[in-house]
Simulated assay, not measured.
Amino acid sequence: MEQQTSKELLKQIHAYIESLPYSHEPKGLYDPIEYVLGLGGKRLRPVLMLLAYNLFKEDVQAIFSQAAAIETYHNFTLLHDDLMDKADMRRGKPTVHKKWDENTAILSGDAMLILSFQFMMQGCPVEYTHQVMDIFSRTALEVCDGQQWDMEFESREDVTVDEYMEMIRLKTSVLLAGALKIGAVLGGASEKDAQLLYDFGIQIGLAFQLQDDYLDVYGDPLVFGKNIGGDILCNKKTFMLITALEKSDDKTRASLQEWLKAEDYVPAQKIEAVTAIYNKVGLQNICRDKINEYYHEGMRLLKEVNVEEEYKKNLSDFVMSLMERNL
């Protein structure tokens, strides 16, 4: 059976998404959608869906509409996230609510959500429609659950690591896992294999998010693609911060809390001081060990999927390449 690499699939799905006729009247609703989807990104979720499908079937173009659906949904969440976070930039370009206005961001985001469900239904084989839509709608709702937890954590001082891991499972992992499972279901996978790929996606998603937390402190800006210390400056409740608060002695914790409360500070000094506390607690190794734990558990689950090992190589290579950004 012909297997395609992630690069080949990325090129194809990118061209397919670019060719979609998103834009029609009224332009004020659809131009922002074309703008958001034209910003690019890694197209991680559609590629994972296509790689999962390709474990079982060759004709990947048969599910391009479903792959476009998962990418449209993902970008809808980014559009609304940017609005809620009052973010000015996304992938180096002004966010929709900055380029247009807040009402446009709300309504264009709503239209993207509806379009994602249309694309998911389009050409979906009748025998799989119910299962696919069940996975997709449940996943979409769970992402909202995760976003709500994330917002509530902003005003809480007592967030635990377990609560944080559950939040990122919902906000990040379930969409990766859902993409993989939908690809597997459409490829005719057994229930067991589809679930294994879902569970694999959950573990890999947790590893990805923890890696982002880690790289925000210890990454190389040139490799990571964004400035270091952003999470520290906005007191974001990450694995790093929560673990540091849990593991510090009283004096160190008090010092960290002073920085969290500080309103007048030099950004570079805050980043340096908080990073020094993270180093003192041994966070670099704690976080890397946790990342490796989730990554290896994911790979163990992938090994259990009942297809030839050589068929899984493109999927495991793709995930490995994403994990090697700067660790």
Rank of each mutant, 00 (worst) to 15 (best):
E2G: 15
Q4N: 13
L10C: 05
I13F: 09
H14S: 15
E18L: 11
E18A: 14
S19H: 13
Y22F: 15
H24F: 15
L29P: 10
P32A: 04
E34G: 14
G38M: 12
G38Q: 13
G41W: 11
R43T: 03
L51P: 10
L51H: 06
A52L: 08
Y53V: 14
N54M: 11
F56R: 00
E58H: 12
D59G: 07
D59F: 12
S65N: 13
Q66T: 11
A69P: 09
I70N: 02
T72S: 04
Y73M: 06
H74T: 10
H74V: 12
H74R: 06
L78Y: 02
L78M: 08
L79Y: 12
D82E: 08
D82L: 09
L83S: 14
G92F: 13
V96H: 02
E102G: 06
N103S: 06
N103M: 07
L107G: 05
M112G: 00
L115T: 01
Q118F: 05
F119R: 08
Q122A: 08
Q122I: 04
Q122Y: 11
G123I: 04
H130E: 14
V132T: 00
M133P: 01
D134Y: 03
T139Q: 00
E142L: 14
V143I: 09
C144E: 05
G146V: 06
Q147F: 02
E152F: 08
E152R: 14
F153P: 01
E154V: 01
R156C: 02
R156D: 14
E157L: 14
E157V: 04
T160K: 08
E163N: 03
E166R: 14
I168Y: 09
A177E: 07
G178K: 01
G178Q: 10
A179S: 15
L186A: 08
G188I: 06
S190L: 07
K192A: 12
D193R: 12
Q195S: 11
F200K: 05
F200G: 00
G201R: 11
I202E: 06
G205K: 04
L206H: 13
A207V: 08
V217I: 15
Y218E: 08
D220N: 14
P221S: 05
L222D: 13
L222H: 09
L222Q: 07
I228P: 02
T238Y: 01
L241D: 03
I242Y: 00
I242S: 01
L245Y: 02
E246G: 03
E246S: 08
K247M: 10
S248E: 01
D249V: 02
T252L: 03
R253N: 00
K261I: 00
A268D: 13
Q269P: 05
A273Y: 01
V274R: 02
L283Y: 00
Q284C: 09
I286S: 05
I286E: 09
I286F: 03
R288F: 01
D289I: 00
D289H: 12
K290H: 02
Y294F: 15
R300I: 13
E304C: 06
E304R: 11
E309T: 11
E310T: 15
K313Q: 15
N314V: 06
D317A: 13
V319E: 05
M320V: 12
S321W: 04
L322A: 04
M323Q: 15
N326I: 06
N326H: 11
